[in-house]
Design a protein around this nucleic acid. Structure first.
Length: 267
DNA sequence: CCCCATGTTCGACA
DNA sequence: GTGTCGAACATGGG
């Protein structure tokens, strides 16, 4: 479920716990989400620590605790974060539960594709510092986009947009939304774009990120019917721009929704 | 029972 | 070495 804006939404779900001291950590050490994590160390270090801040970057989140303890969270396909008043009885898929004086902070993940990391130190963890530039920042330039498309020249645009090393936060629905708004066929090879099309793609990436953050990232509002988003899973869905049928097919290994009347394949 | 799923990684192969 | 593609991961829902 979670892409850029959904991740930002989930990050804020733990906000009520900021300033609270962790009384107890409950976790399932064998759960796959802890595959890269020393759970003994995490438990020891977080018990008694105070949640101070949270950050989101693409699909990654980082929670900072007193004493230089950092909890990294990736939600995978089905992960979510939520906050409940105490007392709270953890459910089957609540794999990490932090008990604070007034709240419990929960990481739920049925499918276990999510991931927890734990680091200690005064600075932000190295892996966090090494994340690629945020798509809404000045550091993500049209030049960088151009270079990346060139390097992935033979891959379909759909597959390229899903590469987190350059497009942190973009997932399946955002990639489809971007290509639809930019009127580019998802199967177009990345190296085939004209300079004009690269410019259009760049502007559209930023536009969709900004729109998603505003509508979904704030309070998980319902996207308007003018977006592809609201039609992509409807059977017999119709393109809001052309009135023509939408289609779904597998492109770049993922189910892709697009509007053939609007998004034409060149040559 | 069958198919599908808003994600990432790993191994096979060109 | 580089780049692409499909399978695998684990579980639930339609």
């Amino acid at each position: 479920m979670p892409e850029l804006a959904e991740v930002e939404y989930y990050r804020k779900q733990w906000d009520p716990g900021i300033g609270g001291e962790v009384g107890r950590v409950r976790l399932h050490p064998a759960a796959r989400i802890f595959r890269d994590c020393d759970t003994k160390l995490l438990e020891r270090a977080l018990t008694g620590a105070v949640l101070e801040q949270s950050l989101a970057h693409g699909k990654q989140m980082l929670f900072g605790f007193s004493g230089g303890a950092w909890l990294g969270v990736h939600l995978g396909m089905t992960g979510k974060l939520f906050c409940e008043p105490r007392p709270y009885a953890p459910g089957k898929h609540d794999h990490l539960v932090l008990e604070l004086p007034e709240h419990v902070l929960v990481f739920y993940d049925a499918r276990l594709f999510g991931r927890v990391r734990f680091d200690q130190g005064p600075e932000l963890p190295e892996w966090w510092q090494a994340l690629p530039p945020d798509l809404l920042s000045d550091a993500f330039t049209q030049e960088a986009l151009q270079q990346f498309l060139k390097r992935r020249a033979r891959s379909p645009l759909k597959a390229v947009l899903l590469m987190q090393e350059r497009f942190p936060g973009i997932g399946n629905w955002m990639a489809d939304e971007i290509l639809w708004r930019a009127a580019l066929h998802p199967s177009t090879r990345a190296g085939q774009l004209s300079a004009r099309e690269v410019g259009k793609l760049y502007a559209t990436i930023r536009e969709v990120c900004a729109d998603a953050m505003q509508v979904i990232g704030t309070d998980w509002g319902e996207p308007p019917p003018s977006w592809l988003f609201t039609h992509r899973w409807e059977d017999g869905g119709t393109c809001p721009k052309t009135g023509q049928p939408l289609v779904r097919e597998t492109i770049g290994g993922r189910t892709t929704c697009y509007s053939p009347a609007r998004q034409k394949l060149k040559g």
